[in-house]
Amino acid sequence: MFQIIGIIVVFVMVFGGFSLAGGHFDVILKAMPFEMMMIGGAAVGAFLIGNKPKTVMKTLGDFAKIFTGPKWKAQDYTDLLSLLFLLTKTMKTKGVIALESHIENPKDSAIFTRYPRIMKDHFAVDFICDTLRMMTMNLEDPHQVEDAMEKQLEKHHHEAADPAHAMQTMADGLPALGIVAAVLGVIKTMGAIESPPAILGGYIGGALVGTFLGVFIAYGFVGPFAAYMQAVYDEEHSFYKIIQDVLVAHLHGNAAQISVEIGRGGVPSKMQPSFAELETALDQIPSEVG
């Protein structure tokens, strides 16, 4: 919602101010299709040149995040803590043997299948299962496990945030592409130097539209879009950090309830369940699960 409001504000303030100052839109409207073709087309071409196909497709797929925000909602964080509680409790009370069937085939696990939204995230499920698998292989040094998890998280976050980096690179290049369009407009003007001043003025105005559009699009839209996408990726990353916090706390010998309480502290404030809310969620888990 705020992104849509922001877009409207940018347009109203820029073009409203231009109009109130006595500006005329005829030069802008006449030059805009050709300038946008040069600037926008060059920006898209440079975007395709500078990024892997996977990044290009992910950018197109993730663009909606600018308006929808992070995929994880408050209930998802509560579900994640409940899932980790069940896993760590099973491991502590029944041993690693009881856990093997769940981590080897999570799709048929009575624990994992309770939380279908988490099941749809392949990285989250694989991250949990791979870490627990390391624990069942007697890798119980909390520091080694934490280091291994940190490397996985860093790699995943870097790859997930590629679209934000790609868009920021595009934003950085747009002003220069606007100058390219403006220079071409000046070349056109110089080619018609013998024309009357009124015509030359229109040519120069059209050339300056290129500079305006490059800067306007870069700093008014693409740059802010890239910044917000990065913020979304950072918040989504905290979901996976909670997995690390809980499982490392478990390795330090904490009870399942304490481990998930440590993980609860890493939940973004606006999504964080209270102590009582989490306790209620854990109490609602049927005793036969696991």
Rank of each mutant, 00 (worst) to 15 (best):
residue 57 M to H: 07
residue 82 S to H: 06
residue 57 M to K: 13
residue 91 M to P: 00
residue 80 L to D: 07
residue 88 T to E: 15
residue 52 K to I: 01
residue 64 A to D: 14
residue 38 M to D: 09
residue 52 K to V: 01
residue 82 S to K: 08
residue 44 V to L: 12
residue 70 P to G: 08
residue 67 F to V: 10
residue 88 T to A: 08
residue 62 D to P: 00
residue 94 K to T: 07
residue 93 T to E: 15
residue 70 P to W: 04
residue 87 L to D: 07
residue 43 A to D: 13
residue 93 T to H: 09
residue 59 T to M: 08
residue 77 Y to W: 13
residue 40 G to P: 02
residue 50 G to K: 06
residue 61 G to W: 09
residue 62 D to V: 00
residue 66 I to E: 11
residue 86 L to D: 08
residue 93 T to S: 12
residue 86 L to W: 02
residue 88 T to K: 06
residue 55 T to I: 07
residue 93 T to A: 09
residue 76 D to K: 02
residue 38 M to I: 15
residue 67 F to I: 04
residue 56 V to I: 15
residue 75 Q to E: 15
residue 66 I to C: 06
residue 63 F to S: 14
residue 85 F to K: 06
residue 65 K to W: 00
residue 76 D to T: 05
residue 57 M to Q: 12
residue 51 N to L: 05
residue 67 F to Y: 13
residue 93 T to C: 01
residue 66 I to H: 08
residue 84 L to F: 03
residue 84 L to R: 05
residue 86 L to T: 08
residue 88 T to I: 01
residue 86 L to Q: 10
residue 76 D to E: 09
residue 87 L to M: 11
residue 65 K to M: 13
residue 88 T to G: 09
residue 89 K to R: 14
residue 89 K to T: 14
residue 62 D to R: 08
residue 77 Y to G: 08
residue 46 A to Q: 11
residue 63 F to V: 04
residue 96 V to F: 06
residue 97 I to A: 03
residue 53 P to E: 05
residue 39 I to N: 02
residue 74 A to Q: 14
residue 95 G to T: 02
residue 76 D to C: 04
residue 74 A to P: 04
residue 64 A to S: 15
residue 95 G to W: 02
residue 65 K to E: 13
residue 94 K to W: 00
residue 89 K to L: 04
residue 90 T to L: 11
residue 90 T to F: 00
residue 53 P to Y: 11
residue 60 L to Y: 14
residue 56 V to R: 00
residue 42 A to L: 14
residue 53 P to T: 00
residue 55 T to V: 12
residue 64 A to E: 15
residue 96 V to M: 13
residue 49 I to D: 09
residue 76 D to A: 03
residue 96 V to T: 15
residue 69 G to P: 04
residue 97 I to Q: 02
residue 40 G to F: 03
residue 65 K to Q: 13
residue 55 T to E: 06
